[in-house]
Design a protein around this nucleic acid. Structure first.
Lengths: 317, 317
DNA sequence: TTCAAGACTGCAAACAGTTGCACTAAACCT
DNA sequence: AGGTTTAGTGCAACTGTTTGCAGTCTTGAA
């Protein structure tokens, strides 16, 4: 039923290898033959079968993208950018969701291995050891994790966190709370290390917390009790939850306490007050990751972050 | 370099066909042989090559999912659910983004056609005619569009819209504005038809509008001028933009005007006031679509929607 | 005019599996 | 005991494409 290279060959009176070449190495075939083959192919509605091609060439023109949670607002812009970059070079993109389970990462990589030319792994939860082992089966690039032997794309949260705390300091806050993330998080550690370096403010760490709205909500009382007038939250969801929790306690943002988030996800732009936050270059990271993968370069890149000042921060009372 | 079925055959002293069968038809091979082959395969780290398998069987065990915009908060829950359903049956999922361009739909379907067993198409923008033509190349199921010849999953927005208007009527609103969506939208038409059927309220239609925050923002003045005290917006983004626009005009929600959205996206839950909205069963739709695809059943299903009452609606002044 | 160098094209062997068919041996039935 | 079924395995052809090698035909140069 499906039209193959042989049908085209027969219909245009040449050998299959010539047809093959008009698609994969056009310069090797005579212009006249080429155009004849092309028109015949067009008429017949022929499209090369990528699976068959992959079999001989070893390249599938497919890429895999693994994230912890597709529905987490942090990821979609990254996925979208990765897809666009892949598409531009005529690659298809498998997308997979681990549901935050480290074991799923390994399993997915294994399952992908024969079917993709590489995979990009976002904020992996697996151990470095496990990842290094997997890197032998299939090339990959990791986003937001340092890993030797694999290409790495980092977003410089540390810098962003410092900007955020400096922003608070500049507004006159002297005591700021850091509502941290989950225990093993690379990002959380980076944020803390950077925040601690800012001179002139006393930092109090509250956490670890779940990286969710609920996590922020739950931290509200401790924030109030800490006496801090400014807060840097692990991410925007935490910040939003925190603002809600503070409201519950009769504290309003930014009048009573200033809050800055991290990530710059859509809901932060839409909530009230609009969130001051550290914008993460997720789209750039996604795009870059697939570019590195396709070009097979092993590099480690650090992407700039920046502070977006909106309505959730102001001078303390 | 990579270990094939032949390596396993040699190492375990059987013919390749036996190895093949221990993986794809285990019941046809003797238990003892099977376990021997299995352990050898395990030792060698053999994994069947899906591309090669696809070549003979014609089934790739891959599915495609095409959405208009991955970054639109409406889609990620659907993608996630579709992925989970696919994974459960050992299928991989290609995800693609058309960037709202109808032409991209066709192109993507064509490109996928040889590489997937089917594709699910969300809220397509292409003409029915074009879709019917494509349906001959590859099986697909469509979400949120009626199309004969293809399996269809519908979300019953009409019902939800009616509930929403009835809710407003029940609160005492007598004049409600419908801030509609883009011109050619099936959904928008459904909403309007349903809203018009509710007795006891006068409906004024404002639109068409872009299905975005900005679209809602821009409609604020016309809503004020309409004299309506209640509003049903095309979707949550429009509702959020509208609320912002109304605030700009000195009108607050729900005190001065009640607003209900549609979709129940995350930002609506997180914004202030929390949005009353019609919850769309996106996850169920995604899951169901891939199930239909895998089981190759051509059915048309209509999924229930429901009203979620939160803080953006109250009795009129 | 002859010969070497290109430019095209065909041939056939891969690639990694699946599967209909044939064969053997054991188990079953009368 | 003889014939028939059945379980298990091997054989080889096939899937759609690529690609190294070899052959043919022009060209251009000497």
């Amino acid at each position: 039923m499906t039209v193959t290279i042989r049908d085209v060959a027969r219909a245009s009176g040449v050998h299959v290898s010539t047809v093959s070449r008009t698609f994969s190495a056009p310069h090797m075939v005579n212009a006249a033959t080429r155009s004849r083959v092309l028109t015949v192919a067009e008429e017949l509605g022929y499209r090369p079968n990528r699976a068959a091609r992959a079999l001989t060439t070893g390249r599938t023109h497919n890429l895999g993208l693994i994230v912890a949670d597709i529905a987490n607002p942090f990821f979609p812009p990254l996925i979208k950018a990765a897809h666009a970059a892949a598409r531009q070079r005529d690659y298809h993109l498998f997308v997979a969701d681990t549901d935050e389970e480290p074991a799923a990462e390994e399993e997915l990589i294994q399952a992908f291995s024969k079917q993709v030319d590489g995979v990009v792994l976002c904020s992996p939860r697996s151990s470095n050891k496990a990842l290094e082992r997997l890197a032998e089966r299939v090339p990959f690039v990791v986003i937001n994790r340092r890993l030797r032997g694999a290409a790495t794309v980092l977003m410089d949260v540390g810098h962003g966190a410092r900007l955020a705390v400096e922003h608070l300091a500049g507004l006159g806050h002297r005591r700021v709370a850091l509502v941290s993330g989950p225990a093993g998080s690379w990002t959380s550690a980076e944020i803390r290390a950077a925040a601690e370096q800012v001179a002139g403010v006393e930092l109090v760490v509250i956490g670890p917390n779940a990286p969710t709205e609920r996590g922020g909500f739950g931290a509200a009382a401790r924030v109030r009790d800490s006496g801090a007038t400014g807060v840097l939250a692990y991410n925007d969801l935490v910040a939003i939850g925190l603002i809600e929790g503070l409201a519950e306690l009769g504290l309003s943002v930014p009048e009573d306490v200033s809050v800055v988030g991290i990530d710059d996800i859509v809901p932060g732009r839409l909530s009230r007050p609009k969130l001051t936050t550290v914008a993460m270059p997720t789209a750039a990271a996604g795009r870059l990751a697939v570019d590195l993968l396709i070009q097979e370069v092993t590099a480690t890149t650090s992407l700039e972050t920046r502070l977006v000042i909106r309505d959730s921060t102001s001078a303390p009372r």
